[in-house]
Computed example of a mutant assay.
Amino acid sequence: MSANCHPRTDRLAEDPRVRRFVRVGLYQRCPTFGESDFLQSYVASQPDWRVALRSSDDGSGATLKRRGLQRMLAAARSDAIDVLVVRHMYNLSRTTQHLAFLLDELTSHGVRVVSAADPGLDTETPFGLFLVRVVSAVAEIEHTGALADRRARLRHKQKSGNESPLAG
């Protein structure tokens, strides 16, 4: 068995006479200027990769109820894509629990998930999948801390009026 841990990719590697391109899904949450071009150029840099599906959402990363995300999951379940490319893994979800669910769902259907901005975050290998989950957990901790800091600043501001804490 190859070092690759995805059944769909392994099937492609079994017969060297079968030359098939890798079907890629591009997913963007709250797309930024130039992000589509960035993802497209990343795909173009990979041998035999072709964009099969593009999808985007403007919804919150705190929920899985996003039309574009559900479209990508349906494509994975129906064997329409081999790889899902995102700019950053947090574009899939802001919560570790949701990201774990999505990664399990995608990889169970043989879909590799890759971050174009952080190529080391790739579910192709067990170590890459581990890194994705660790980075996701750290990002959630940072996000939770930032929210707590904002709430504390707001409470302080409300208690002290509109006065700056640095104003003598």
Rank of each mutant, 00 (worst) to 15 (best):
M72C: 14
S55Y: 03
T9K: 09
W49N: 03
N91E: 15
P165G: 07
P16M: 07
L73E: 14
T95H: 08
L39V: 05
R112E: 06
P165K: 03
H98G: 08
N4V: 08
S78H: 11
D79C: 12
I81F: 10
D58K: 08
T63A: 13
V113R: 02
R71T: 12
G68D: 05
P126K: 05
H88L: 08
T125R: 14
A13Y: 11
L106Y: 03
G128K: 08
V135Q: 12
S108P: 00
T32Q: 14
A76F: 00
S60I: 13
G128T: 12
V135A: 14
Q158M: 10
T32I: 06
R29C: 07
G168Y: 07
E35W: 01
T96K: 14
Y90P: 09
E140K: 04
S45D: 11
F38M: 01
I81P: 03
R77Q: 15
S45W: 02
A100N: 15
G145R: 09
A62W: 13
L69G: 01
H98V: 03
Q28H: 05
A116Q: 01
F130Y: 13
W49S: 05
A80F: 00
L121V: 09
V24H: 03
G110I: 00
W49E: 08
D57L: 01
D48A: 15
R8N: 07
R133L: 14
D118L: 04
S136A: 15
D48F: 14
S108H: 11
A74Q: 13
H98F: 04
R153K: 12
R8G: 09
V51A: 07
T123P: 07
M1N: 10
L103N: 04
H109W: 00
